[in-house]
Design a binder for these strands. Structure first.
Lengths: 137, 137
DNA sequence: ATGCATCCTCTAGTCGCTAGAGGGTCAAGC
DNA sequence: GCTTGACCCTCTAGCGACTAGAGGATGCAT
């Protein structure tokens, strides 16, 4: 009834590298599990749940500190939703900004690539385009 | 006629921190300049050109290694355009992928935030939403 | 008993800087 | 000439979030 997992099993169950799991333990993100007679880490259901939570949040781009905060809130269910919502919204805003930045950057790169492909090899403008304030002086 | 710049001047001329310039020298991205009697770095026009190029490329999101490659190409002008185009296009593709990932992520976060704001504090679903494969079993 | 996968700890490396300690240099003002 | 303060020097360590490797122990199958 109590599932006991080696670190390797836990890793493959959650798509996490073994070293990463040990790292999470080291920084106090995942609680240290019991050890076997041979000093192997033996994980249980609760660890699997926690690590899944961590991976999911990391996949959504939350920082380790944000994950820590979210987990703290998840542990005390009452009154947590609003706080969680705040974190999620902050993160949502950051993503919106990042998308805007990348889109602008893609446009610049397109201009660069465009200007290059219009020219023959001999007089490529892409290098000058990368140092715009200098090829005029 | 030969403009001599201190590291501070070079920094403010290119929007680069002094430490960053020294770092670029350390990793061999910017050539080491001559030194004054008092052991100060003394930069000239060529350094300004190079550093401007580096900054511009970094702003466009090229990695240090890509910048190194681009600079190598810039030095040997002939036959460089196509190679530059390859690097720029690789980078453009990476950005396209990143934008797609972030957009998908924003959608997931919106669902998360939505599901939270629909509920009262007591039965917030956002935590469960973050560990999707576990709250069903 | 032997081989091999998996596990252990510990340390150092990755990327692109950034910050700090502990000093030396230089130009201006008095 | 002497002080002040901004700038410069080197060296080392830190950030986030892992990743990789050395050097060894354990567990399980044959």
């Amino acid at each position: 009834m109590s599932e006991r997992l080696t670190i390797g099993k836990l890793g493959s169950a959650t798509g996490t590298k073994v070293e990463t799991i040990r790292y999470y333990e080291q920084i106090g993100l995942l609680p240290a599990p019991a050890r076997s007679a041979g000093n192997y880490r033996t994980y249980q259901g609760e660890h699997l749940r926690r690590l899944s939570f961590i991976r999911r949040a990391r996949d959504l781009g939350f920082s380790i500190d944000q994950v820590r905060e979210l987990m703290g809130l998840a542990d005390r269910r009452e009154q947590s939703c609003m706080a969680v919502n705040v974190i999620a919204n902050q993160h949502r805003d950051a993503i919106t900004r990042k998308i805007a930045d990348l889109t602008a950057l893609a446009g610049e790169l397109d201009t660069l690539i465009e200007s290059c492909s219009r020219n023959t090899v001999a007089d490529c403008r892409i290098i000058e385009a990368l140092a715009p304030s200098l090829h005029s002086g």
